[in-house]
Each structure stands twice: as structure tokens, then as C-alpha cells.
């Protein structure tokens, strides 16, 4: 927790005196630790002189915030209209069976988490999936399966894609 505190202090310092900074602070915290732990929200509450409940209330309102750790790669599956009519459900089923997890869960090896998101804005290339910050379009089961395999291969070689 000591290193976490140092990191949190750094984030809090960056936003000190700025109006309406709670959401960016939470975003930066999540970026650093992968999720919002109870401890970090409590620590932020103390520093900002707000109640932890208020902070939790804001955090749970927005879908971006997670309260459990996530995998190294977050697979964002687009559930926009174009992807819906373009058959994203089939990809959902494939991912769930290949990784053996449901949306919102993380694989046992800690490599992947699946997250269902609203539109990613690449509707002409539906169905679309985003892994970390990389977008993959015009997907089929076969194509997505191979992409996931690439990540596994990279991991074996000790690389990060």
C-alpha cells in the first residue's frame, strides 16, 4: 500500500485546486492500478475531504469504472447497432467458450477480461472488437480466434502486444 499511496498522492497533487476533478482522478487511479480498490477510494475521499460513499456513488454511476482487478488485456466487444445486426452475438459465444469466461470476468491466467461496450464508432467495419487500444474490424469467428492466439503466442515469448 505504501507505493500505492505515493502514486495516489502524485495523482491528487496533479489535480489539486482544479474544480470538478474527481472523475479524472478516478480515471487516473484506474489507469495506474487497473481498477478502483476500496482502499484507494477511501484514500481519495480523505484527501478530498469527501465521504467515501459520495465517491463510490460517482464511480458506480459510470460504466468505465471497475471494482475488481482485470486481465492484462481487456477485450472490449462492441454492442453497437451495426455490430448487433452484424452478428456480434456469435463472436460473444466464441470468446466465452474459447476463454471460458463470461463478460465482466477475467481468465484464470490473468491475461484476458471481456467487457461488453456500447458503440466503438467503427460501424462500417462491424462486427468490431477492441483489445487494449487496438481495434479489429470485419471479424469472423475464425479471424478473432487467430487474433487471440497471437496474444497467447506473444505472451509465451514474453512480449506484450
Amino acid at each position: 500500500m505504501e507505493t500505492n499511496k505515493a502514486k495516489l498522492d502524485q495523482i491528487l497533487k496533479e489535480y489539486s485546486g482544479i474544480k470538478g476533478a474527481l472523475i479524472p482522478i478516478l480515471q487516473k487511479t484506474q489507469e495506474s492500478f487497473g481498477y478502483l480498490s476500496q482502499e484507494s477510494m477511501g484514500y481519495i475521499a480523505n484527501s478530498l475531504k469527501m465521504s467515501a460513499a459520495d465517491i463510490y456513488g460517482v464511480a458506480t454511476f459510470y460504466t468505465q469504472f471497475r471494482f475488481t482487478p482485470v486481465g492484462k488485456y481487456v477485450i472490449k466487444v462492441c454492442h453497437g447497432t451495426a455490430c448487433h445486426v452484424g452478428g456480434i452475438k456469435i463472436l460473444d459465444a466464441m470468446l466465452e467458450s474459447k476463454l471460458d469466461i463470461k463478460p465482466g470476468e477475467t481468465t484464470k491466467d490473468g491475461l484476458f477480461s471481456i467487457q461488453q461496450v456500447a458503440c466503438l464508432g467503427c460501424c462500417s467495419l462491424a462486427p468490431v472488437v477492441m483489445i487494449s487500444d487496438k481495434t479489429y474490424g470485419k471479424l469472423t469467428n475464425d479471424k478473432l480466434g487467430k487474433i487471440i492466439d497471437q496474444y497467447y503466442t506473444a505472451e509465451k515469448e514474453g512480449k506484450t502486444l
Binding site: H79, G80, T81, A82, H84, A118, C119, G121, C122, C123
Partner: peptide
């Protein structure tokens, strides 16, 4: 905050 699924002109 272009939220409508299916719209991507703002992006």
C-alpha cells in the same frame, strides 16, 4: 459524447 450506437461522424 457521441453515444448513439451507429453514429460516428463526431469521432
Amino acid at each position: 459524447d457521441e453515444g448513439d450506437p451507429g453514429a460516428f461522424m463526431d469521432r
